[in-house]
């Protein structure tokens, strides 16, 4: 049993995009704040802090997670993935990211990180989604700029591309 006292800072350790990270947090510190302000991983955004907008969505131990509804202390020892870990290298975008750029699937980019994480997670398990499935998945996100269609188009294109590249590698 671990009981962390309210008024003290406690060390929190986890793996962030494959790297071990550590910081200190009071029990009440939200994971979104911990990522952004303790670790400097500011790619995860905060738009509502009550679970509705989806901007803060990340992946914790393979689960889509609203980081604004999660305490930093809760992810001790977990594996976290955020938007900073999506690109294959610093100067190259991944397939999904490229599809977003090609389709103008972002304008201000504030909602984008959360949407990318939901799609990245979903496409890994559902390589051939329909438009309706993507719309259902993304109904947990709000984008105020794009009107959504380009996002859906980007997701479908990325899924197709990922599927065909997988096929190529398995054919080879």
């Amino acid at each position: 049993m671990t009981r962390l006292k309210a008024d003290a800072r406690h060390s929190v350790r986890f793996s962030l995009n494959g790297k071990l990270v550590e910081g200190e947090a009071e029990p009440r510190m939200l994971l979104s704040d911990f990522l952004r302000h303790q670790l400097g991983a500011t790619g995860t955004h905060v738009g509502c802090e009550h679970g509705v907008c989806g901007a803060c969505t990340i992946i914790v131990d393979g689960m889509l997670t609203r980081s604004c509804l999660t305490l930093a202390a809760q992810v001790e020892g977990c594996e976290l993935r955020t938007v900073e870990g999506l690109a294959p290298s610093a100067d190259r975008l991944g397939v999904l990211q490229q599809a977003f750029r090609r389709n103008h699937a972002l304008q201000c980019g504030f909602c984008t990180a959360g949407i990318l994480m939901s799609l990245d997670h979903y496409l890994a398990g559902n390589p051939t989604p329909t438009e309706a499935e993507i719309r259902d998945l993304l109904s947990g996100h709000i984008c105020r700029c794009t009107g959504y269609t380009p996002i859906i188009q980007a997701a479908l294109e990325a899924a197709a591309e990922l599927a065909s590249s997988k096929k190529e590698t398995s054919d080879a």
Binding site: T42, T44, V46, E84, L93, Q97, H104, G109, T112
Partner: peptide, 21 residues
């Protein structure tokens, strides 16, 4: 022409610079 946006690479990889960042 609808060229790709210069803004996007950073925004798509968590490199945006919004006020709270």
């Amino acid at each position: 022409r609808s060229i790709e946006r210069v803004e996007d690479a950073a925004l798509l990889s968590g490199g945006g610079r919004f006020i709270d960042d």
